[in-house]
Simulated assay, not measured.
Amino acid sequence: MELNELLLGKGIDPRGVIVFRHRPNEPELNKVFPLLAADRPDLFNAYQQTHGEKVEKAMLSAKHVASFIRHGSGKALFIGAFAIRKTTPLTQAQYWRVPAHAELRKLGMRGFVTGSRSSCLWFDLKSIDFYSEWKGKLIVDWPPPERSWWRRAHRNQMSIHAVLEDSALDTAMQKWNELDLTWSQLSILPKRWQAKLAEWRGIYYIFDSSDAKGYVGSAYGAENLLGRWRNYGTSGHGGNRLLRQRDPTNFRFTILELVSPTMPPEEVQWLESNWKERLHTRQPYGLNDN
């Protein structure tokens, strides 16, 4: 069986389908793209709603998009199918005013609207119920050449390689002492990770890669580390005076120590102070002002 048979089985003519196998060129965005596919469908769809002129032309004559992401050499992992509806021209200024584009930019997206192009087309893509239960599970063989990331469905044969029992998008939580997150990644944490961070309380470290200075903080309130890091993800500084003066895109977040969920706040605060002393994060050497 192959993809075109699945399309026909749902009453979709392959002649009107563009198949994407997304693999962003930007290294930082490519690294987190499976997380967007898993838990941020708004950002995933925003990424595929604008394209270069050649893809624009193909989409104008199509009715549907079948979206996959790269899943190793010669394989593609199914994310969803979308109906192509209206188009809207966007200038470069309008393009970057789209909130999702601004968020993707923080994750490393450069945007294709460069050079001599003064505008692009934005495609209204509406998710449709096409084997939705196979999101992250359906794997198809991607015909060569490998670098050709989009195809017209009716001109290609994409055999069904496998239908997994569990989604390949379910990202296992790293060990707490292996986490090393950028500020931008705080907004796209997988749900499984969020649940764990909400359980964990302890001492965390913020490293500013611009000058190698650090900040030590503690988390023991509502939602523990998740609640604290969400605050940084939203504000960029978490209310800390010295961090307000800095660019949060240079921040990296790690965990120094986990503590018991029943540890009294004053003991957590003592541990925090102890880490500040040992890592010399109080000003003028670091970013703690107390």
Rank of each mutant, 00 (worst) to 15 (best):
L243P: 04
N250Y: 09
D247W: 14
G214F: 05
T91C: 03
R228W: 14
W150H: 14
G236Q: 02
T249F: 02
D289N: 01
H280V: 02
A62L: 12
R230L: 10
G115K: 12
N177R: 10
Y131C: 14
L43V: 06
E223T: 06
G115L: 12
N240L: 02
N177L: 11
K106W: 06
Y285N: 06
L256C: 08
F207P: 04
R117G: 07
W142K: 07
R23T: 08
L35R: 15
Q94N: 10
N240Y: 08
F44W: 06
R70N: 04
G214Q: 00
L7R: 03
K135G: 06
H237C: 05
Q92W: 10
G233T: 14
N290T: 06
G111K: 03
M109D: 03
R201K: 11
A81S: 13
K31I: 01
K10N: 14
L164D: 00
R278N: 03
G221I: 04
A222H: 01
N231E: 15
W150S: 12
I69G: 13
A83G: 01
T91M: 05
D247H: 11
V216A: 09
E5N: 00
T91A: 09
N4V: 03
S132V: 07
S159V: 09
P261Q: 02
K175G: 08
V32M: 05
A38M: 06
K137Q: 13
Y220F: 12
A219C: 04
G239K: 09
V268I: 15
Q245M: 04
G227K: 12
L121G: 12
P143W: 04
N224C: 14
V259Y: 02
S209L: 10
V216Q: 02
Q245H: 08
S148F: 01
E223C: 04
R201N: 10
W96P: 08
L256S: 01
R241S: 11
I206V: 10
R201E: 06
L164K: 15
L242M: 01
D170M: 00
T254M: 03
K196Q: 14
P145Q: 12
